[in-house]
Amino acid sequence: MEEKITAKNVSFFYGTNQAIRDISLSVKENSVLALIGPSGCGKSTFLRCINRMNDIIPGTNITGDITIDDESIYAHRYDVTTLRRRVGMVFQKSNPFPKSIFDNIAYGLKINGVKDKYEIESIVEKSLKSTALWDEVKDRLHKSAMGLSGGQQQRLCIARTIAVQPEVILMDEPASALDPISTQKIEELIQTLKKNYTIIIVTHNMQQAARVSDYTAFFYMGELIEVNKTDKIFTKPDREMTENYITGKFG
């Protein structure tokens, strides 16, 4: 597996407050990296650096560099719109558009220039099948997405994300507001999606990190304490601080 994303000495500041410090790590293509750590440790901030979501927050500043396929996403000429197409994001709270299920997915395609009706229909179906939602919604594609359950809405958001064929999917606690069955479906989905995408997931649920990820990075107070294969982190971490966190001694 080749390295898809590489962060080099990334620091991020909200005004004078430094949220992450000198983070360097790599994410392999078609793998799942879980970011864990206590609240305020900088994991979500780091996640948002990968698709430059933090750019929209006034008074923030980033140093260091992040590359995707060896290309700097913070280079002066790098097109942020292209970046956000390449790097999709799923949030904690599902946020479907107040439109039909079909339109939720078609919208992204249309603004990306896909005009052919049959192509759009085909991609909508494919995306819904990829997220195991097709059988549940195929009879009501033109009904409002707001009528779906929380778990279905979140899978719709994932379908919407993958419809535009990103290369990387960022997930910020995608299942924290869902019931166990929906959570399981999202976790199964992550396992399926990694065949085609590189996934980075922020989660507070350590068992979830252990279940879904290939690699786990532990953040604490803005610093990357340890990153390693997930089974290593959860059975024999190298750093005592990681051990103390995952065994619940702090955090």
Binding site: M206, Q207, F234, T235
Partner: peptide, 9 residues
């Protein structure tokens, strides 16, 4: 308790 690391071991 879903122990991890040394607790799991």
């Amino acid at each position: 308790r879903q122990p991890a690391a040394s607790d799991l071991r």
